[in-house]
Design a protein around this nucleic acid. Sequence first.
DNA 1: CTGAAAGCGCTTACAG
DNA 2: CTGAAAGCGCTTACAG
Lengths: 345, 345
Amino acid sequence: MERSDAGGTRASIADVARGAGVSTASVSRSLRGLGGVSEGTRARVVQVARELGYAISPGASSLRSGRTRSIAVVTPFIDRWFFGRALGAFESVLQQADLHVLLHSLHGSAEARRRLFAERILHRRVDAVLIMCLKLEQHEIDALRALDVPVALLGSHAVDFSSVAIDDFSAAREAVDHLTGLGHRRIGLIGGSPVDPLHFTAPVERRAGYRDALKSAGIARDRELEADADYTVAGGERAMARLLDLPQRPTAVFVESDEMAFGALRFLRDARVRVPDDLSVVGIDDHEMSHLVNLTTVAQPVAEQGAAAAHALLAALADRSRPPSRVMHPTRLVVRGTTAAPRGT
Amino acid sequence: MERSDAGGTRASIADVARGAGVSTASVSRSLRGLGGVSEGTRARVVQVARELGYAISPGASSLRSGRTRSIAVVTPFIDRWFFGRALGAFESVLQQADLHVLLHSLHGSAEARRRLFAERILHRRVDAVLIMCLKLEQHEIDALRALDVPVALLGSHAVDFSSVAIDDFSAAREAVDHLTGLGHRRIGLIGGSPVDPLHFTAPVERRAGYRDALKSAGIARDRELEADADYTVAGGERAMARLLDLPQRPTAVFVESDEMAFGALRFLRDARVRVPDDLSVVGIDDHEMSHLVNLTTVAQPVAEQGAAAAHALLAALADRSRPPSRVMHPTRLVVRGTTAAPRGT
DNA sequence: CTGAAAGCGCTTACAG
DNA sequence: CTGAAAGCGCTTACAG
């Protein structure tokens, strides 16, 4: 029968060694499943450890071994769909590998980002690091390398590190090609600001994909049709308002994320603009709410990216000499009810 | 100018002591801002530490001091609105206090929950623990107490620990009172299963509030009108389908969460049931998407609860003799467009 | 104000 | 297969 009394809580490896009549070295080897211990010894040690309610001291273990069994994840936000979902899958894989996840959110703050790298907050505290969706500056790459642990990126790339992402450029092209294929010529963009202090990767790539799609369709670019937002529902709402204020309204809008698209749809409904009759809308993500509002979008596999990032780190931990890997996950256009041919065609 | 070379990365407290011509004790005191050091010494130490790129070894520090500067948060899910938002606010407060957050998700698994407590996964690894939304069993409370660190609960209560929550019973009453006030008599429930293996607190309390509101309005309870779901959009959809299949349909439905309500609304739209003309719907949460679908709901302050939980833990850390606190956050009915008087009134 | 020294609890060569 | 011992890098009484 398992019990854990107050005394048991404080049992150290020396207590277990004493109880089993062996050295602390043998206890360490037995409990970690290492070779070089007889089965009899191991069984006795395991038994005594359980009786005493022994639990290793992570601090002592990591001081000696240099391994912390923790992995940091640096994320711009926690409370947004993409990040929550990627994080969940990431954490799940690592938990199964008996690793802990240190959560470090930037909360959208460039200052928090600066502090993270300048103050060596992760130093010696983790065995590996995942960076979500940030376009890294060279000095940040240097700071990460100085940590001397495997680093992986989710949603961006850097030559030095393993990365997992979708092809944001192609995803945007897919969305806008769908619109031009339907016959639209005047196509707006609601996207992240290119001057966002946090420097996300997606806005830059997706905007480039949008422009490229227009070019391929022989449509001249009109800077007025590009509205900046901040990847939130409210931001999408405001950006849509600006687009509708234009002397020459677009007949379709490509929105860089589903959450912004929700905001755009909301504004259109209130403004009595019919979708897709008067205006088509296409997003990126396939957010879990998208089917509710019947949004046409380019789906990306989010949980899969989180899990892949975890596996990349696990592989790097198992073999430190392994070269960085780069995984691109596929996207897929999901046509629903918010897109149609422009009126009068 | 700040630099961090490879050598700097490995500097230890002894290196700093040597560089500054003082003992390691003085370095420790200087860097932690403790008293008993002259300003001249402190300045010199700080300067040398910066030059060498010194960063403390968390393992060594915690081995000696017993403090890890980490706080664990145990959450049933990461990728749901409520949890992401509460978690974000929680982490933000702790980060500002120079504390780290260890994220441990149960991923909805009762087995993961069992393992967490049985295998002493948090033992000596954290200075405090936050438990989200779980109704704790006695043996779990015992296991948490054996950790010998402050524990706080968010979304549930236990006599031994500090807690932060809303009054789920009242929130449900508020929602259902609104419905009965409008004249509804046949009111359905879409709620969490009372036999969910994870034992959440909210479903039990909210269902009780629903029943109490009916009773106060003199309406007999009809078990058929209570549909079990799992707090997901898809679950809300399925539950709504079952309610519509009833020989005698409800004229209104109280849904225990906005996310389930979204699913319910989706089903109603596809089934061509008009809301609120044919059927009223009210939720709980005030999810960020709720205003998009015009959902009437009972708002709860989620980020505030996360921040309050962090502050409760901070206070306990500062004064271990402080008795457990219990904070109840207010809820507020937000009437939008999914509720109205029943037809023919 | 300062330093010498003990010791936190492990892991890891090393020797047998 | 096993153990004695060193040492990881700090913090903390203690003494001066």
